[in-house]
């Protein structure tokens, strides 16, 4: 009965910048059942913010008709996040992943989104198709406060 240990949720929302904070707070609330540390919560909120912002700015180019989907699941002490859009997709993934690279320098983007996601999570994968959308899959093991205090 291993499936009983798994918990999951799915969230769908319009590609509007107002929803960035809604998305990260919701994921943080879902993950709180693992009793994460403040640092772990901040890491998760930051990566959700990065991925959702990418979908809004790059995937949908700020068209609010776009839809961003977040699936989060918890299995044992590990959180898996999948953040997807059906937007433009990324032409050159390797280039996009370079620290400080941005396809939109005119918007004062820092080009650090992917670097932050890679650094804050244990696993990080991007799948993207030009014209089809982008899907980011990330995993992080939550050490939790309980483990630290024992």
């Amino acid at each position: 009965m291993k499936e009983n240990n798994r918990n999951h949720m799915t969230l769908q929302f319009a590609a509007k910048s107002e929803n960035e904070s809604f998305a990260r707070v919701t994921v943080a609330a879902f993950v709180s059942q693992l009793d994460p540390t403040m640092e772990e919560i901040t890491d998760l909120k930051t990566v959700v913010s990065e991925a959702v912002t990418n979908s809004i700015i790059h995937g949908y180019e700020e068209n609010p008709e776009g839809i961003v989907t977040i699936s989060a699941s918890i299995e044992e002490d590990t959180v898996t996040l999948v953040i997807e859009d059906k937007g433009r997709g990324i032409e050159d993934l390797e280039l996009a992943k370079q620290p400080l690279y941005t396809s939109k320098p005119e918007l004062e983007r820092s080009g650090m989104g992917f670097t932050i996601m890679e650094n804050f999570m244990d696993e990080f994968d991007v799948a993207s198709e030009v014209g089809g959308g982008t899907s980011i899959r990330m995993k992080k093991r939550i050490v939790s406060k309980k483990a630290l205090y024992n």
Partner: peptide, 13 residues
């Protein structure tokens, strides 16, 4: 209380 890479962009600019 919270900042992400968009904030880094503002600082750099």
């Amino acid at each position: 209380q919270f900042m992400d890479s968009s904030g880094l962009g503002v600082i750099l600019g």
